[in-house]
Design a protein around this nucleic acid. Structure first.
Length: 201
DNA sequence: TCTTAGATGCGCT
DNA sequence: GCGCATCTAAGAA
């Protein structure tokens, strides 16, 4: 039997706990051509007291909320997607956490492909399994996730988040986040130690 | 209206 | 390991 999607209440625990807890969870993309499934192996947390968070602006050393058209989904209900476009090429997908009005989210940085690898390869234009989903822009391309899914409820098709096997904390590595220029020292990136699809070690 | 930076990935060295 | 494509939206003017 198929597990029930993650409940909205689950995303109300601390965002750092959600980021760790999403390791091992399943992301399922349903398309007319078939179903694509990946296991989450790498995440990053973005918090409301965090200058690197899109929903935050830093003014005189103090963080305050910054709600804009682009990041509106971050201020929306927990358990929904926040998808945005960057560097002129890439979509990145986050899972919104905390109550409405609180801009916190978890960036999905890498997946281990489980189902539909042929279709993922077609979307990516290459077929090496490791290169399919070992980065946030890559996994969005592989699962055909784009701005249309911004704000999407992840309990519903065509993009679902399902619980997977819990990862023991001894198998989780925490490091500073990748590719940001502010608050670069906070160890809010989490990945499954030794997993082949982690974007960078 | 204009300037600029950005939660990246690819190709080349 | 390094440089650059590519383009949207924020923020300044």
């Amino acid at each position: 039997m198929t597990p029930a999607p993650l409940d909205a209440a689950w995303f109300l625990q601390s965002t750092l706990d959600v980021a760790r807890g999403l390791l091992g969870a399943l992301l399922v993309r349903e398309l007319p051509e078939g179903r694509l499934t990946g296991r989450i192996v790498e995440t990053e947390a973005y918090l409301q007291d965090d200058p690197a968070c899109h929903g935050v602006r830093e003014r005189d050393g103090v963080c305050c909320h910054r709600r804009t058209k682009r990041n509106a989904a971050m201020f929306g209900p927990p358990g929904h997607a926040y998808v945005y476009f960057t560097y002129g090429n890439h979509f990145l997908m986050n899972v919104v956490t905390q109550a409405e009005g609180v801009p916190e989210a978890v960036l999905i940085r890498a997946l281990e492909p489980l189902e539909g690898m042929e279709l993922m390869a077609r979307h990516r234009g290459l077929d090496h399994p490791r290169l399919l989903t070992n980065g946030p822009g890559k996994l969005a391309q592989a699962l055909r996730i784009d701005g249309v899914l911004d704000g999407h409820d992840l309990r519903l098709p065509p993009l679902l988040l399902l619980p997977g096997d819990a990862i023991p904390s001894a198998h989780v590595t925490a490091t500073p986040r990748i590719g940001i220029s502010r608050a670069i020292d906070r160890p809010w990136r989490f990945y499954i130690s030794g997993n082949e699809w982690v974007s960078r070690r």
